[in-house]
Design a protein around this nucleic acid. Structure first.
Length: 300
DNA sequence: GATGCGTGGTC
DNA sequence: TGACCAAGCAT
């Protein structure tokens, strides 16, 4: 079996079964692709959709966001989670204006140099926005390739250079078709070759699937311990940021004190938000989202 | 390489 | 019902 057999079958299936997602529409700008990819990092599609539309309506181009405040970006992020991504996206907009004339760069290294853009996101933009032949490897592709191509039960916990090489080996030569293959692999991993209950009866590559041939072995190695949330600093950060997000301007520290009883943990969480640059001191014991413009006439 | 980083949905 | 999950990145 050759790698392109997998790609050909995946693309044929994708052409007939792909979800109609807005960032896949022909003519979608590279900026819109970048926004979608950042939002989709660890956040489900269903929750991204409304935020994606709202974000691009307000900031259709990087330059539109670059002249607005980080605070507005954090506020517009809403409850997508991991709000550092909002700040990084704002930093991206500033960098794109400063370094690339307001156009999202097509060069992989230039993309990788943008804040919050890593191996996955950079290649996703290069492939999906610019039609380049790049291995686009996220958790779905890793799982699909590990199973279908290598017959393994699952992919490893983190993306390795070997994962990129494995994925690239499956890509058709022609760049636009390679990009489509990557989208097809992602889609298959997301909706058919899922982590928990793979729907092999609906899979277009079942006949040539290594995992199927091996009898669908179950994962054996150690799994990553599921992340705790309740009672963690993360939860406290979320509560603090929610107050600042919903306020119009700077908030007295005393108001933040109400969200969590443990002062030690609360202070640690607030300090980490300050360290991350998500929150700024606003004088007189006030705190605000980063770059928040002071209210006209002061805070009283 | 292991951790920290949000939030809400699912079974 | 609470463990587990959902298109990663930075450190």
């Amino acid at each position: 079996m050759s790698g392109t057999d997998l790609a050909d079958a995946a693309i044929e299936w994708f052409d007939a079964n792909a979800r109609d997602l807005p960032w896949r529409a022909p003519g979608t700008s590279a900026w819109a692709v970048l926004v979608s990819e950042i939002m989709l990092q660890q956040t489900p599609v269903a929750r991204v959709l409304p935020a994606y539309h709202a974000w691009l309506t307000r900031w259709p181009k990087p330059a539109d966001l670059a002249v607005d405040t980080p605070a507005e970006a954090i506020r517009m992020w809403g409850r997508l989670g991991y709000p550092r991504r909002a700040m990084r996206l704002h930093e991206c907009a500033v960098a794109i204006v400063a370094r690339h004339g307001g156009e999202v760069p097509a060069d992989l290294d230039a993309l990788l140099a943008l804040p919050g853009v890593g191996a996955y996101t950079a290649r996703a933009v290069a492939a999906f926005a610019y039609g380049q032949r790049q291995p686009v490897v996220d958790t779905n592709v890793r799982r699909f390739v590990a199973r279908a191509s290598r017959g393994k039960a699952d992919a490893g916990p983190t993306t390795t250079p070997a994962d990129l090489a494995d994925a690239e080996a499956l890509l058709p030569v022609e760049p636009a078709r390679a990009a489509r293959a990557s989208a097809a692999f992602m889609e298959l991993g997301a909706v058919v070759c899922t982590a928990r209950a793979p729907r092999c009866t609906d899979c277009p590559v079942v006949a040539i699937c290594g995992w199927r041939a091996e009898g669908r072995p179950t994962p054996t190695g150690p799994t990553r311990r599921p992340q705790q949330y309740a009672g963690t600093d993360r939860q406290v950060r979320g509560l603090l940021l929610a107050v600042l997000r919903e306020a119009r301007g700077p908030v007295p520290g005393g108001q933040l004190d109400l969200v969590w009883a443990d002062a030690v943990q609360r202070d640690r969480a607030l300090r980490s938000l300050l360290d991350d640059g998500l929150v700024s001191p606003a004088g007189e014991g006030l705190f605000a989202l980063a770059g928040e413009a002071p209210l006209p006439g002061g805070h009283r």
